[in-house]
Design a binder for these strands. Sequence first.
DNA 1: TCCGCTTGTGAAAATGTCGTGACCGTGGAC
DNA 2: GTCCACGGTCACGACATTTTCACAAGCGGA
Lengths: 283, 283
Amino acid sequence: MTTERGTSAQALRLAVIDTDSGFLQVLDKRLERLGWEHRTMASAVPVETIVAMRLSALVVDLAILGPSGWDYLHRVCSELPGLGVIVCTGQSTVAQRVRGLRLGADDWLTKPCHPEELIARVEAVVRRRRRSDARAERGPVAAGDLEIRSDRFQAFVDRRSVDLTRREFELIELLAGSEGRVLEREEIYQRVWGYAMARGDRSVDVFVRKLRQKLEKASPDWRYIHTHFGVGYRFAAEPVDGSEPAERMAEAAVAEPADGPAPATLRLEDGAGIDRAAAELAH
Amino acid sequence: MTTERGTSAQALRLAVIDTDSGFLQVLDKRLERLGWEHRTMASAVPVETIVAMRLSALVVDLAILGPSGWDYLHRVCSELPGLGVIVCTGQSTVAQRVRGLRLGADDWLTKPCHPEELIARVEAVVRRRRRSDARAERGPVAAGDLEIRSDRFQAFVDRRSVDLTRREFELIELLAGSEGRVLEREEIYQRVWGYAMARGDRSVDVFVRKLRQKLEKASPDWRYIHTHFGVGYRFAAEPVDGSEPAERMAEAAVAEPADGPAPATLRLEDGAGIDRAAAELAH
DNA sequence: TCCGCTTGTGAAAATGTCGTGACCGTGGAC
DNA sequence: GTCCACGGTCACGACATTTTCACAAGCGGA
């Protein structure tokens, strides 16, 4: 298996500034089906809003921006060097296209165009950026005493590196990245191992155990991985019921099944969409 | 300080696979004026040759490759994930364009097209790529006893030059430039060798060993390159664990008085033109 | 309380990865 | 032409990790 460049289909975040309702309708449906988060806007939005949307790419019809379009394009491109920018607009001259591309646009597509081609071009544009930044993307995740740094392939408990193997790290990374959510074994396996879990496979459990051991040794005051019987595991830093260490332990053992962490509500995937993300910052 | 995206005009290395002599003539003149190293070819050349050319971008007319064009496109794109690939060809359907882009092409331009637009698109594609790798060119990096001077193509341990070969230097430069981060073999290979790593290739390991040997001899009190099992390598100067410094000292003192810095010449960055570079491997 | 099923645990077996030394072809220096 | 540094390959052994397995412990419903 070679380094597949063509593998399409990671979910991207995309915004479209356009007003061509017919085109948008078709495009929307297609994007929906691909599972890309997307949003369309009828006119230029402030650059800060774009920033807040944390997009992978932006598609823009220069025509509807009027004469300030060039300036806008330039501002967007220099503010967000990492953003893929595709101009998709009507008839244009060579000079205009060259100008747009030199200003920082990554591609220039002439309408009318097929949504599928637009999508393919967006993918092509985003592909490269992904390639190298991929891992550095999300900043360090921290919870309890634990800090997870994806770029270092390492977890730290107060400066001290917790030695994790590759799988262990990928597992804790996944769990911590979905903090608070209960992940089913199938999903965990699928996302860490990359293929479907065979029935009866206990790998996930085994690795959870290894992680717990290492984490407990490194950070005894917190519990991080919680079992949900019949379901899966949930990551959340919870102080080990240290409030009353030994004493209460005995009591609890006898008297109460005291399940400290409430039956854990299952939250849905935080659909924190583009709108919300934008609102947060643009507010 | 805005990150100027629009700045054009670094010299690039470009190859064009096309036969349209009229178009090529105009293009050639334009490229000449820009000072880009370029070369045109009338038919598909082996992928290894492309590799040897160390291009920034490749422009190709799929039409002249015949039916094997798709396969060729795919091979080039997966061998050289870092290469900008622009398809520039006659009439085409949406499906063809989508296919090309998904296969790994970065842009698809329809003939007839204006050379200026082609150039702008090449720039846009390369810019996108540069942006990701772009952290090179920094001042001297220092860590532990070691100092790395990219400008001199040399590494020093307290005034004394550590004789490194070209590859060794490129490797340590890359690693040190990403101090603290774990780099996967694939990425290392990709960035030092310039093309995709074949499965089972141990070159990276071998060069890491050579580096470690030389570094240890030159700077016994520090360890610089750390293995992350199943992942890759990380550069970080860490004092050698004082647990048995004496022993090591004695051993070193007795066993290897021989410090003879071998004559090892460092050759300059091969300014070799495209032709020569290609010839080297294509021989 | 008992039963069936799920999860935790420890260790052995299987697999994969890395460090190492030896070896080879090439190309430049002499 | 000869010599030799250099980049690259190979095979082997050591060892780290992953997987599998058998059994104990825990949970939940009847």
